[in-house]
Design a protein around this nucleic acid. Structure first.
Length: 567
RNA sequence: UCCAGAGUAGCUCAAUGGUAGAGCAGCCGGCUGUUAACCGGCGGGUUGUAGGUUCGAGUCCUACCUCUGGAGCCA
């Protein structure tokens, strides 16, 4: 199947045996400098451009080894294997804990260890596979006379693997327990499916029920309402939609890191417990070890002062930007607001880049680039899950994302945005006027109807923005910006920070804040101050924007909202 | 927190103030390749909770609880 000699590994150590005749090998073509993969890290030193046949291995441990049903993670086991390379033969010793990082299960008195194939990889196979092993959860079973179809899903992708079980297959007598929700291991032959609907199917040679799911299992193969699924938040990841959402969430998080890492931003872990009440960004959760009313004597508390869960990492990010130039945070954030809406959670994840030697224009540019990059990512990299969102969540989500990815962002000063809203002739529920916050209805009008493009509104009146934003030369406005997109409204809020010591002091005074509470923050202006800017993105809101999911409770694994911390 | 709506079988929903029902799921049986399979049968309820009006309440009234949508706050 490729150039170069094939490596074959046999095992001669008494308790480790080579696979029996006919058992399938997982073959991997190695490119130059590539390692053999996580299942056999000790093979890294093998010359490149060889095919390495490593797994499945059939392993029988001595009787007193009882590691049934879980991977080897301990140390102390090793085995010797013979390696044949054409005519040459050599022996190498491998640590089992390294080699066998793969699930194990008992067959009689033996421990069988076989490389698991993910459903995703099975479905994307280029060739038939003589023998492979999949593990997952039964989505549904359809019985016919003499055989059954079992749909197996392991979360590696949206699609299920169709398993065909003949009555004669080993373990077929357990088929009645292969109900929706049960977990199972299936070994079989991957062959082209004669019916339409799937390219490949697995003809089971052996199946094993791992965990039953009785008739009370709440998930059915039919669609469920999002409201119902929220009441079973621990089981909803087993549904198609939530599988898609949380796969996307994971990949999006990775892409966020990639976006900033590629631009030489330093990932900063800002504290989760904080003493700074600086933001005024909302009610904070108190952190205390004192019983009863802790506010009474904070000096006796664990930290000797009142402490809270963070509402923002921005101030700390500014400190590090004023040293490392470009930084970003990506972590949990907490707001104890009693807000009960589809867009608010008490615990959420926030991304906050902060850039030294950067002004508002640079800040807006990065924010816009970021949103476009995330839209492009999901369009290009998550097409299967995105198709599900387009089908069941928001019909126009793909068009909306293309719209954002393609169009240049319109930039409009706040005063101009207000004038547009006042002159548009449209009657809004809430008043529009200079000095008032833009409401979500106003924001959506600007981006969806007036400009028909993503919009960045900047230079807001000083009165409606926090103390740390930089005062513009007009003395009236601050260098703040909000990025608005169709369908969602505000996705980014940011600003150039006030870097002038005296002006920052004046800002604190203007807000009736005490300078002594902001000593270290003022220090940043006292020593080597620089113009700097940043913004915040709610990760869940970004996910809502990208998937079309309308409720924040459905894009976070365990939603925390007022009165709800179950799961 | 404010405003509005909803709460009936495991799920999704019906039921003019007058005997609480259907589809799906589940269970049993049938079916030679199914795709939210199909066909036949069976079981399934303190109508969110507590009061009240009425001969009679799932239905009307009051309070509370929960959920949903909108608003405020924001990310």
């Amino acid at each position: 199947m490729c150039g170069g000699a094939a490596w074959q590994i046999d095992v001669d150590d008494g308790f480790v045996e080579p696979p029996g005749a006919g058992a399938g090998f997982e073959r991997k073509q190695l490119g130059q400098g590539e390692s053999a993969g996580g299942h056999a890290p000790n093979l890294e030193k093998m010359p490149a451009r060889h095919t390495v046949a490593v797994v499945p291995l059939l392993v029988g441990l001595s009787k007193n080894r009882q590691h049934i049903g879980r991977p080897f993670v301990g140390s102390g086991y090793s085995m010797t294997v013979k390696i044949r390379d054409g005519g040459r033969e050599s022996k190498r010793r491998f640590g089992l804990n390294l080699l066998l990082r793969t699930p194990a299960f008992r067959v009689g008195k033996r421990l069988l260890i076989m490389q698991r194939t993910l459903v995703k990889d099975a479905l994307h196979s280029r060739t038939e596979r003589e023998s492979l092993l999949v593990q997952g959860w039964v989505r549904t079973r359809r019985d016919s006379k003499g055989f059954s179809f079992v749909e197996l899903n392991d979360g590696s992708c949206l699609a299920n693997l169709q398993v065909v079980v003949d009555a004669g297959a080993s373990g077929a007598e357990q088929l009645a327990d292969f109900t929706t929700g049960a977990s199972a291991v299936v070994e079989g032959k991957l062959v082209p499916s004669p019916a339409s609907g799937q390219k490949w199917e697995l003809h089971a040679t052996r199946l094993e029920l791992v965990g039953r799911a009785d008739a009370s299992y709440p998930l059915q193969k039919k669609g469920h309402s999002l409201e119902f699924l929220r009441t079973i938040a621990h089981l909803r990841p087993r549904s198609n939609l939530f599988g898609a959402i949380f796969r996307t969430r994971s990949r999006l998080a990775f892409t966020v890191h990639q976006f900033f890492q590629q631009r030489d931003f330093v990932y900063l872990h800002t504290p989760i417990i904080t003493a700074s009440d600086c933001e005024g960004a909302g009610e904070m959760f108190r952190v205390t070890t004192l019983p009863g009313k802790s506010e009474d004597k904070p000096e006796a508390d664990f930290f000797g002062r009142p402490t809270y869960l963070t509402v923002s990492g921005q101030l700390e990010a500014e400190a590090f930007a004023c040293a490392l130039s470009n930084v970003y945070t990506f972590g949990p954030t907490f707001r104890a607001e009693n807000s009960n809406t589809a867009r608010h959670a008490a615990e959420f994840w926030m991304i906050e880049p902060e850039m030294a030697f950067c002004d508002l224009a640079g800040d807006m540019a990065l924010g816009e680039e970021f949103i476009k990059a995330m839209a492009r990512f999901i369009l290009e990299q998550c097409s299967e899950d995105l198709a599900l969102f387009a089908k069941f969540v928001e019909k126009g989500v793909i068009e909306r994302l293309k719209f954002v990815a393609d169009r240049p962002f319109v930039r409009v000063p706040y005063a101009e945005a207000v004038a547009i809203l006042q002159q548009c002739g449209k009657q809004f529920e809430l008043p529009v006027g200079y000095g008032l916050n833009l409401q979500s209805a106003h924001e959506r009008f600007l981006t969806e109807e007036h400009f028909k493009a993503p919009v960045t509104v900047f230079n807001y009146p000083r009165e409606i923005k926090p103390f740390y934003m930089r005062l513009n030369d007009d003395g009236m406005t601050v260098a703040a910006m909000d990025v608005l997109v169709p369908g969602v409204g505000e996705v980014i809020g940011g600003a150039q920070r006030e870097e002038r010591l005296e002006q920052l002091r004046e800002n604190l005074k203007y807000r009736h804040l005490k300078p002594e509470d902001y000593q270290w923050y003022l220090d940043l202006r006292r020593y080597g101050t620089v113009p700097h800017a940043g913004f915040g993105v709610g990760f869940e809101r970004l996910l809502m924007f990208l998937t079309g999911v309308a409720n924040i409770r459905d894009v976070i694994p365990s939603p925390r909202t007022p009165g709800n911390a179950a799961f």
